[in-house]
Simulated assay, not measured.
Amino acid sequence: MEFAERLTALAAKVRQQKGQIETEEATKNAFVMPFISTILGYDVFNPLEVVPEFIAEVGVKKGEKIDYAIMHGGTVQILMECKKSKEPLRIEHASQLFRYFAVTNARIAILTNGEVYEFFTDLDAPNRMDAKPFLVLDLNDVDETLIPELMKLSKDEFDLDSIISAAGELKYIGAIKRAIAAEFREPADDWIKFLTSKVYDGPFTQRVRDQFTGLVTKATKQFLNEQVNDRLKTALGAPNFPMANDAEIAATVTSEASVEEDPVETGIETTLEEMEGFHIVRAIVCGDVKPARIVQRDAKSYCAVLLDDNNRKPIARLHFNRMQKYLGLFDENKAETRVPISSLDEIYEHTEALRSSVRAYLEPSAN
């Protein structure tokens, strides 16, 4: 099994079992030890590779233990401190990691609750663990761009120099991406004020703030959609991609807005992956029907792609709420078949099935 597949399998296990994990020990046994063994590749039962409850002399803190020390080349290379699942990680949890980092050869420290893994090193000062992680792995939402870096910490491909040299860039790129994502989900006042100042010359009163909060939110979502469309046009080839006119675009926006549900009230939130998947499906079938007629409607368990905003005319369903993604395809009887996909690009492999669904609805006898 490939590295990414093992990570996917562990992420699925975490999602399935985290509701039953109540203690730190249960977290270690169910999630952390499998991470060390199946992802990083170290034998958790071999004290030459993994030392549980590792002890080092740390000033006046005699006999203080850290949860795991991972050995490589006969020396301690990675320190790991665990907290119970469902408990949000805080830098205060890393106090023992800070102390141990200074008195061992370890250059990597990991703080985890079994779901989120925060990786630290000493970028700011030699032999002193940084206060902020250079890499954050969330098994509830795995960032696939981090997988090559994570592999460098595995037993078979251990490359400390490479991971340390990349840590500075990883630290700030990761932090910037998380900050951007937060602004797109819920724009902060400073962000709203900054963008408003670029387009509005009047004073930034409370009324203006209220007005532009909604406008900034809509503009950021539309910007993302446009970026996705640009990628699709490039992938499909612009000459073969029929562009909608202004009226059709307006109709699409209106149609999508009419079915958009408030995630605060319903618990439904359309993810960027779902929006990108929707645009891929729409790009595929636009040779048979105008793009304005293809609409997405989100639900808690899947995102539906419909013809004419009619749930009796399903084209596809995007089951992206789990680590293993599925593309739902429909036959002539509207029976759904779920096809596992590992990336959004694999949707293109089902072009004919998607187009067949649309063509069936365009036939005179279709309901």
Results as ranks from 00 to 15, higher is better:
G287C: 08
G174A: 02
I180M: 15
G114E: 07
D138Q: 02
D156I: 00
N321V: 09
K334L: 15
A167C: 11
D308Y: 01
T196D: 00
G202K: 06
A182C: 07
R317N: 15
T252C: 05
L236T: 14
T27P: 11
G59F: 06
S95N: 12
P314Q: 11
K132M: 14
A235P: 06
H93C: 09
I110S: 02
R338S: 09
D122K: 03
K28C: 00
K233S: 11
E265F: 13
L362H: 09
H72M: 09
L344F: 04
K28G: 01
K325V: 09
I315T: 03
N127K: 15
H72V: 05
A235M: 13
I164N: 04
A235W: 10
L170N: 00
F54Q: 03
L327W: 11
H279P: 01
I192H: 05
D190N: 11
I66M: 01
I66S: 06
V216Y: 07
K152V: 08
G287V: 15
Y100H: 12
A12W: 04
K155I: 05
V76L: 06
I147Q: 02
T271H: 03
M243Y: 07
H279C: 11
D345E: 11
F158W: 07
N29Y: 04
F101D: 08
E363P: 03
H279A: 15
D308A: 09
V289H: 07
Y100A: 09
Q227Y: 01
K155W: 03
L153R: 12
Y302T: 12
N321D: 12
T270Q: 08
K233P: 04
R209V: 02
L7C: 01
K61W: 02
N127V: 05
T38Y: 03
G237C: 09
E226L: 12
H72N: 13
Y326D: 13
S162K: 05
F54G: 04
L170T: 01
Y68W: 03
D156E: 15
F134W: 02
F35N: 04
E169L: 11
K290I: 06
N127T: 08
E157I: 05
G63F: 03
E273T: 10
T271C: 03
L215F: 07
S165V: 05
V44E: 00
I294E: 00
M275C: 07
I91Q: 15
K193F: 00
M33K: 15
R99Q: 14
K28I: 06
E363V: 07
M151D: 09
N240L: 11
E352F: 10
E274Y: 06
T121A: 02
A283T: 15
I78N: 09
Q206I: 10
I55T: 13
I341E: 04
F35P: 08
H350I: 06
F184R: 13
V50C: 02
Y117C: 03
C82K: 12
I66F: 05
A257S: 13
L232P: 01
S356I: 15
G267Q: 12
T252F: 12
H279G: 06
E115P: 01
Y326V: 14
D138C: 07
T270H: 01
L40P: 10
E81N: 12
D201M: 08
